[in-house]
C-alpha cells in the first residue's frame, strides 16, 4: 500500500490520465457484476436485487434438466470454433489477395463488394435463406427441377445446417475482418518486399516468408479476442436463419437461442441471469486456458 502511494506521488500526471478509463471500466464493467447474485435468487420486484431470497442453484436446473445443457454448450463451442477458423482464414486470404492486386480501381471495387454483406442485417439474410431453401418455391429446388433432379427438403436435414450457417457467417464477416489484416499488411516495410524481389523471390515465397510472419501477431490477437466470445452464439444469426423450426434445433441450437426460447414466456429474471452466469464463467475459463497455452508457446503473443 505504501509503495502504491509512493508510486502515485511519483507519476501523478500519468495516474490522472488513466483515471477516466479506469473509472469507466469499474462502473460499466465491474459494478454490474454484482447483478450476478440474481442467478442465485428468487427475484421479486418489490424486494429488489439484494433483498430477494436466496434459492441456491434452482435457477440453473432448467438448463440441464433434460440433458439439453450439454448439447447446446457443445453446439455453441463447435459453431464458434468453426466460424472462427473459416472466417479468419478467409479474411487473411482476402487481405493478401487485395494487397497484391495492382489495378487501383479493381482493388477498391472488389474490397467494397466483399465488405458489403457486413451491412446486410440478419433479418434480410434470413429471408434469403428461406427463399433459397423453401421446398415448394425455393431457388435451390427450382434449379434442381430444371436439371431434372428430385427436390431436396433442406429443413428435413439438420446435418446440412452447420455448413449453411458457416457459409453465411463467413460471407457476412470475412470482408469486415479482412480490413484489419489489410491494415497490418500495409504496415509492413515495403523495403523488405523490394529486397526480396531483387533477390528473385516469387510472389508465393514473399507471401509465405514476409507477409504471413509479419501479420502473425495480429492473427493471434484477433483469435484470442474472438475466443473470449466463444460461448456467446451470434444470437441474431441463429435466430433469423433457423427461427422457430424445431426440426433443426438439435444441430443448430446454441445457448442464447435456447434461453431466449425457454424464457420468453415467463419473466423469470433469475433464470436468465443464471444462463448468463453460466456463459460468462465458461468464457472466463476458456480464455484463461487459451491464453496460458499461447503464453507457453510464445510469451510475446499472450494477452495478459
Amino acid at each position: 500500500m505504501k509503495d502504491f502511494i509512493e508510486e502515485v506521488k511519483r507519476n501523478k500526471a500519468l495516474f490522472v490520465m488513466a483515471a477516466p478509463a479506469v473509472i469507466l471500466v469499474l462502473v460499466m464493467q465491474y459494478l454490474p457484476m454484482t447483478g450476478l447474485v440474481l442467478a442465485f435468487k428468487n427475484y421479486r420486484y418489490d424486494m429488489g436485487v439484494f433483498g430477494s431470497d436466496w434459492n441456491g442453484f434452482a435457477n440453473f436446473s432448467y438448463l440441464f434438466s433434460s440433458g439439453t445443457g450439454w448439447l447446446i454448450t457443445r453446439n455453441t463451442i463447435l459453431y464458434n470454433l468453426l466460424n472462427l477458423i473459416t472466417s479468419q482464414f478467409l479474411a487473411v486470404l482476402i487481405a493478401i489477395f487485395i494487397t497484391e492486386m495492382n489495378g487501383k480501381i479493381f482493388k477498391k471495387l472488389s474490397q467494397s463488394i466483399i465488405f458489403l454483406p457486413y451491412f446486410i442485417s440478419w433479418v434480410i439474410v434470413g429471408v434469403f435463406v428461406y427463399n433459397i431453401f423453401n421446398y415448394e418455391t425455393g431457388l435451390l429446388n427450382g434449379m434442381l427441377a430444371s436439371m431434372g433432379l428430385d427436390p431436396v427438403n433442406m429443413y428435413d436435414k439438420p446435418g446440412a445446417w452447420p455448413v449453411i450457417i458457416c457459409v453465411f457467417n463467413s460471407w457476412k464477416w470475412c470482408g469486415y475482418n479482412s480490413v484489419i489484416y489489410i491494415a497490418a499488411i500495409t504496415g509492413v516495410d515495403a523495403e523488405i518486399y523490394e529486397a526480396a524481389s531483387i533477390d528473385g523471390a516469387t510472389i508465393f515465397q514473399r507471401i509465405r516468408a514476409i507477409t504471413l510472419p509479419s501479420i502473425k501477431p495480429t492473427i493471434i490477437t484477433m483469435l484470442l479476442l474472438q475466443v473470449g466470445r466463444i460461448l456467446r452464439g451470434d444470437f441474431e444469426m441463429f435466430y433469423q436463419i433457423v427461427g422457430n423450426n424445431g426440426q433443426l434445433y438439435n444441430a443448430t441450437d446454441v445457448i442464447d437461442t435456447y434461453v431466449f426460447r425457454s424464457l420468453l414466456q415467463n419473466s423469470n429474471i433469475g433464470m436468465t441471469a443464471a444462463a448468463s452466469f453460466y456463459q460468462s464463467t465458461l468464457c472466463f475459463i476458456i480464455i484463461v486456458v487459451v491464453n496460458a497455452v499461447v503464453k507457453r508457446i510464445d510469451e510475446e503473443y499472450a494477452l495478459f
Binding site: G126, V127, V129, Y130, F133, N134, Y135, E136, G138, N153, Y155, D156, V242, G243, N244, N245, G246, Q247
Partner: peptide
C-alpha cells in the same frame, strides 16, 4: 408448405 416453420 413443407418449409412453413421457417416462413415469417
Amino acid at each position: 408448405s413443407k418449409s412453413a416453420l421457417s416462413d415469417t
